[in-house]
Design a binder for these strands. Sequence first.
RNA 1: GGCGAGUUGGCGGAGUGGUUACGCAGCGGAUUGCAAAUCCGUGUACAGGAGUUCGAAUCUCCUACUCGCCUCCA
Length: 501
Amino acid sequence: MTQITLHNSRTRRKEALAPIDPADVRMYVCGPTVYDRAHLGNARPVVVFDVLFRLLRHVYGAGHVTYVRNLTDVDDKINARARALQEGGDGRDLNAIIRTLTDETIGFYHADMKELGALRPTHEPRATDYIPQMVAMIEGLVAKGHAYAAEGHVLFAVDSWRAGYGKLSGRAVEDMVAGARVEVAPYKRNPMDFVLWKPSGPDEPGWDSPWGRGRPGWHIECSAMSHALLGESFDIHGGGIDLMFPHHENEIAQSCCAHPEGDFARVWLHNEMVQVDGKKMSKSLGNFFTVRDLLDQGWPGEVIRFVMLQTHYRKPMDWTEAEAERARKTLEGWYRLTEGVPAASLPSPQVIGALAEDLNTPAALAALHDLATPETAEALKASVAFLGLGCAETSDWYPRPRVSLETSGHYGVRAPGTLPEDLVNALGSTAARFLDLYADAKAKKDFTRVDALKARLKSLGVETAISRRDGKPCVELTAHRALSEGEAVQLRHEAEGEALK
RNA sequence: GGCGAGUUGGCGGAGUGGUUACGCAGCGGAUUGCAAAUCCGUGUACAGGAGUUCGAAUCUCCUACUCGCCUCCA
């Protein structure tokens, strides 16, 4: 069995993964707060941990991995956004707006992440479906002396767990208190104490609790939901490195104090940030663009995924159009090579080996380059698919409708399932006419008419490529987009053409 | 101020003590009406300094620079 090695942020070392139960490898990854479309930075952990999910399924079996990624649908940012919508003229009450906003955002999230080739996790719990579990966990923490109620809030007392608090992020409570730049609420016993539960105003989302009507603090949902779905000990916890403190530190404090019999998460993985011009992409800096922005600009989702995989997850990643263009060309080359070739039953051992070594995706892509030969196209195809990139037959951007025609009369249509029959016929006839013109032009050494036809086809969105097969000319016409009614008529006109002199 | 990560050729990016990474771009060539695609060949690197070692991109120390967290964040 392949041995997976991962860099555990908790120990700052690479460690061999030894699942608690190989028949049920359990992973939790922090998901989005759903109030806005996912930007590229939000997408990185989705892609990174999707690769890990695929690797775990490969090694331990598809039915032996449980992957949980939460949807945080209760949060002050959501409330703020909903209020803004209200002030902008939405007459409904706040809770109704919030429900619509979160539902819609979850829909966007799923659609956008699907474009990136990410599999759906095993479970995607919504925080609002786990309020009772959160309340129960908080009650337990209060009972054990790890939390206290104050002015309608419940706070975690970091002084009750000084032995463990700060271990993950390598911080001392004293240092953080000394360096704090934020005003401290007067009811906190220690400035580092954080909110487990807070009171809600009458119009805000709220649930009844022993401390009055309120809502959970930021960190508790991950502790409650990971416990509910994965138990008090599980294998892997992932998220962006900016979550290491305070979010993950606080999760650990809550979970370990509520369930001291368990280990909580054994291996912690943190992906580095996406950068723009050398600076972290973030909403507060305003230098972000969404996945949807890139898709709308015409970048296929798998090109975005490829660019992400080109950078190791523990290094900052830059999005540049130059890199995206290279990725697109590389994928095109691989698709050309694998089109119509059956995929091998298993991905290449080199690819698996690279991924098993702390998710070395750049090395995995390098292994793919090595496989990019006609002799190894079957392995290439299986490996490309394993990484969550498309393959020629299923990718919706590469095998654009196109036909090829040789002078021998051999006639080939690619992607027939997606190509309307009349367009096939029009392209085929045009290809035949092109070959006639071409043969005539070669004989006369005058390519004027051929070039004119190429130009007209290009204006219809149809690219012309001439190659040779067995020494004979072969023309390939590729429609880069769906043709409008008018363009289709013009194409048929080209097919009929004027008579050759 | 505290803590942490990083600095590899024109660009991207592997590589943790000793043999070409790889890709893109460039250059030369084959093929080619043009173009595309394909094929062959090819140069350039380890931030700076000191140390350990027979030998360092790889280990140690120092310096410089970049970035992140400490406030919502993926």
